[in-house]
Structures are given as structure tokens and as C-alpha cells.
Write a protein that binds this DNA or RNA. Structure first.
Lengths: 135, 135
DNA sequence: CGTACACATTCGTCAATGCGTATATACTGA
DNA sequence: TCAGTATATACGCATTGACGAATGTGTACG
């Protein structure tokens, strides 16, 4: 049986982008895979809240998750639909220009360089850049 | 007093795109100004429903309205935010590639050429292409 | 004026969404 | 096997959004 790919849901795609927390998550992922604990730390939001928004993005087909031991890594996956992937790329580029998004990214960089300073991140796995073929 | 432009609401922008009826409306507007009665005819939806979705797009800063006699014309306005306007352009280009959107456009063209055949459109004003400076 | 037309808004209802809190699940290590 | 950590899901509640039906508003015209 051929892989049944249901037609891309455009509504769901844009609805997924219509929430600031989710935009911040996407912005943090950018081109790297990130562990949930970093999202919680950087956005300073309750863990179930982060988890629910990540699940929403997953259902919309915008991110994918990978488990590694206790940790879950999330990454952006480009939608199979060409138009959608172009809009998503453009959106990510746009977010990079926004002040608040830049601030998030900068906090992430800081946390990754000195995770020991964030009590919640002791021993947490560092983000891993994705190989080119995965983008 | 300087014109107080409140910071562009990104959430609202994407939420406005997260509904198929609104996407169809935007696709029909494309680069021309269109009278509400055409939306009602082409989408074959209740007039209050069309009107509410147009109001939603207006609140999101994506379309603008102009009255001319009994008729209201709606047109797309590019958001002041650069990133938003780029994403919107890209989205409109994407919609043009979708089957159902093409079908809507084709019905619009047909209705404009022979409005007399659509009993609901007798005497309705034809769409007007926007001058370049307005895009 | 008063009617007719084009369009907007309101109201009641129902589904979807967001959030905090509590709890469940998956994995690790002793 | 049990405790601890990381993450996900369930529950209850408040808000928002979509829709049909009814009603309101602005304009042309007799």
C-alpha cells in the first residue's frame, strides 16, 4: 500500500503559527535540534504549557520529535507542500529580525555555553545542529 | 500628535490566515479590488458569513474597504511590517498554485465577463485592478 | 418620505483553544 | 524493583471563534 499522504492542511498550518509561544519555540529551533528542558528554561513557562504547544506544532506537521533517553529533542521539519515550506522559511527569517526573538536566541546561546549556571539545566544535553540534508 | 502605530500583531496576522474562507477571500482579491456581492456569489456562502470574515481580515490589517454608493469594495493592503508583507506575498503566490483557489479565480473571471448570467449579480460593479502604487 | 438593496452587526449556541493543576508515562540508575 | 527525572496527557475552566438567523445601517431612487 502506498504511503497515504492526506492533503496538506493549510488552515492548521497557519493556525499553528498564530500563537506567540509557538512562534518563539520555532524561532529557538531555527536550524538546530533542541531539548525540551531548554524551551522551559529560556521561555520561562510551565513545562506542560511548552509540551502542549510542541504537540500542537507536531500535529500541524511543522516539527518532529526524537527521544534520546530521558530527553526529547524537537526540530523543525519542512512541510511536504512547497508553498508551505517557502512560507515557513520566510516566517523563520522574519522572526530572526524581531527584537524579542533575538533576545530568546541570545538567552539560548548563553544557556548552552554555561548550562551549569542554570540550575534547571544541570547535565542537560546541548542543542545539536542539524546536518544539511535534514533541512 | 504623531500617528501612533501600535506594534504589528503577529499572532493576529497568522490567525487571520488560519481559516479557509478567509484564504479564499484573499485569493480572490489578489491584485484587484472586489465588491462584496462577488464574494458571496463565487464562494456561495451566506452574506453575513462573508462579511464577518472580511471584518476579521480588516481588524488584522490585511485588507481595507472602500464604499462606493451601495457597494463596498475590498482590497488587500500590505502590512507595514516588512516580514509580514513578504510572508503575505508568498502566501498569495502559494494560493495561486492550489487547485481549489484556481477554481475560485476562474469562476470570478467568468462572473465578471458575463455578470448577467448570475442573477444575483445583475448590475453589480466589476472588479477594478489596482494601480501599481497601491500594491 | 418610504421602499428596496447592499452590507454590517448582534445574538445564541457550539466547538476549539489556552492555561494551571494534577496525574500518567517513559526512561535511568541504584 | 523502586525512586527520581524528563516529558506528556487529562481535567476543569475561561476565552475565542465560527455559524445561522435575525436585525441594524447606509445609500439610491421613486
Amino acid at each position: 500500500m502506498a504511503t497515504k499522504s492526506k492533503p496538506f492542511n493549510v488552515e492548521r498550518f497557519f493556525q499553528a503559527l498564530g500563537d506567540n509561544t509557538r512562534l518563539r519555540l520555532l524561532n529557538l529551533m531555527g536550524e538546530q535540534e533542541i531539548c525540551v528542558c531548554y524551551f522551559v528554561e529560556i521561555l520561562d513557562q510551565a513545562q506542560p504549557k511548552i509540551s502542549r504547544h510542541l504537540a500542537y506544532l507536531r500535529r500541524a506537521g511543522i516539527v518532529a520529535a526524537r527521544r534520546e533517553g530521558k530527553w526529547m529533542y524537537y526540530r523543525i521539519v519542512m512541510p511536504p507542500n512547497l508553498g508551505a515550506s517557502q512560507v515557513l522559511q520566510q516566517t523563520l527569517a522574519w522572526l530572526k529580525e524581531e527584537r524579542t526573538m533575538q533576545a530568546d536566541r541570545s538567552r539560548l546561546t548563553k544557556a548552552c555555553c554555561t548550562p551549569a549556571k542554570f540550575t534547571a539545566l544541570q547535565g542537560a544535553p546541548l542543542p545539536v545542529s542539524l546536518p544539511n540534508e535534514a533541512r
